[in-house]
Design a binder for these strands. Sequence first.
DNA 1: CGTTATTGTATGAAAAGGAATATTTTTAGG
DNA 2: CCTAAAAATATTCCTTTTCATACAATAACG
Lengths: 179, 179
Amino acid sequence: MTDLAAPARPSPGSPSEGASGAAAGRFVDGYLLYLLARASSVASAEFHEQVRARGVPVAVWRILASLKGTGEGLTVGELAKSCLANQPAISKTVDKLVAKGLVERQADGQDRRRVWVRLTPAGEAHVDELILEAQAHQARLVEAIGEGETETLRRALLRLIERAGSGAPSVDFDEFSDK
Amino acid sequence: MTDLAAPARPSPGSPSEGASGAAAGRFVDGYLLYLLARASSVASAEFHEQVRARGVPVAVWRILASLKGTGEGLTVGELAKSCLANQPAISKTVDKLVAKGLVERQADGQDRRRVWVRLTPAGEAHVDELILEAQAHQARLVEAIGEGETETLRRALLRLIERAGSGAPSVDFDEFSDK
DNA sequence: CGTTATTGTATGAAAAGGAATATTTTTAGG
DNA sequence: CCTAAAAATATTCCTTTTCATACAATAACG
């Protein structure tokens, strides 16, 4: 328990209603982007701990996991989008993975600006182990929140991704629209 | 390699099915933690851009937003949990905010290890502006995905947070639950 | 009480991340 | 063709985060 001495307050980091809300709840507790960030954080926390315990930084796990299933690999730019990171960060981490022999670079034949990154056999074996852990962890998570609820969540997330990701600069340009 | 750029592939960073799936989809596209991270990332991207355009780092925004609504403030440790960051990072960012006059520190009366951080009037005014932007952005987001869908998502996220956040070991004790 | 363990915050060195820019290659226009 | 603009990646520099630890205060226990 982490309650402070004087008045009972709703604890930060738990949006649930406490005993006597000091000021009818904080702003963030009703803020959708905060709920999303928090849900992602708490859901990933235990697994990221497992990954780090194996000596694998989360950024590396994301690169390897993103490459799994792509036979030819991904370009650096594609990897950046997939890993939710920016391009220089990917270039640097790929350097380290190349040094470890887990991935390899290859210049594109048609467009020599592009660089493909793909798993080596060693990298494939490595990521396969991690994916087994990830799937086991996900199975426990699904079991905890229920299959139906999981599907509901998954559909809502996919919908949010496609609506928020590409769309909606329109509102800012209302004055310019076909007037 | 000759045909590197040749075949049409589903683009990374969009879980939707592309033209001709190279290998029946990547691992990450079905991975729940990835969907969560991606949804949070794309949903927050535009607003974080607005905040940075005002010269406010996201880490600062999170601290100020977390403090809004807490009259007495939060301790450094509480702030760390609320901001999904670790404690040293909060201490250092609070240093800067104190220097800017947006927050103030105050040692706890009973337990002098604890340090309360609370908004100054200037900080309150500052965060109020940002919150107005956040609410406007959220309104557009809700409009884009629909009110009903938003409520579905909100409930699913809250449920995930309470299940995954504190109580993961419950699944290990299934043998003890009466049914 | 004195001693040890524990908790909460701050600090310092090392690593990671991000913004801006350089470099190379491709595309577009005259 | 030749030059200008755009695109993809690498590199540089600076900020931020992270890990470990130090420090201070409380709690626990003999």
